[in-house]
């Protein structure tokens, strides 16, 4: 391994250089989870504030008014973006909570998969409902 005769750390001698180059670590996914959680968090700072303001603007709205608020193009786009980002961020966050506290492997995996299914279904359902309202079907 140490062809040039230099003293190496024992660990770096046992590690395949390709592993270092890929930078994916023992979890095989690198910093992807961490980074995506931060990016969705930054997006949600703005989307969540927009959501609160929009909901407060829709207080006491009757059916037709509420529909027209959701049907406005920017509101429809941001609402779908909000729910998509919330679900994504929630999946990443709940994953860590589940991995930390659920110590029976099959229950852990089942919960992780269940959370992902619910998040994807929730996102698709919101998309369909918003399209339904926005396009006036």
């Amino acid at each position: 391994m140490s062809a040039n005769g230099q003293q190496h750390d024992v660990r770096s001698q046992l590690r395949n250089p390709l592993k270092r180059a890929r930078g994916l670590g023992s979890a095989h996914s690198g910093v992807g989870h961490w980074w995506t959680q931060r990016v969705t968090a930054a997006a949600l700072v703005f989307l969540a504030l927009w959501f609160v303001v929009t909901v407060l603007g829709a207080l006491h709205a009757d059916y037709a008014t509420a529909r027209s608020i959701v049907a406005r193009p920017w509101n429809a786009v941001l609402l779908v973006a909000f729910v998509l980002t919330v679900c994504w961020h929630a999946v990443l966050g709940l994953q860590i909570v589940i991995e930390d506290y659920v110590h029976t492997r099959w229950k852990e995996v089942a919960l992780l998969v269940l959370v992902k299914f619910i998040a994807v279904l929730g996102t698709l359902a919101t998309l369909m409902a918003v399209l339904h309202v926005a396009l006036g079907a």
Binding site: V83, V86, A90, T126, A129, V130
Partner: peptide, 18 residues
């Protein structure tokens, strides 16, 4: 965790509109 559950309320609201 609470907010993850609360997201279902948003879903319900949009669905009720549709």
């Amino acid at each position: 965790i609470a907010l993850s559950v609360g997201t279902l309320l948003v879903l319900w609201g949009v669905f009720s509109l549709a």
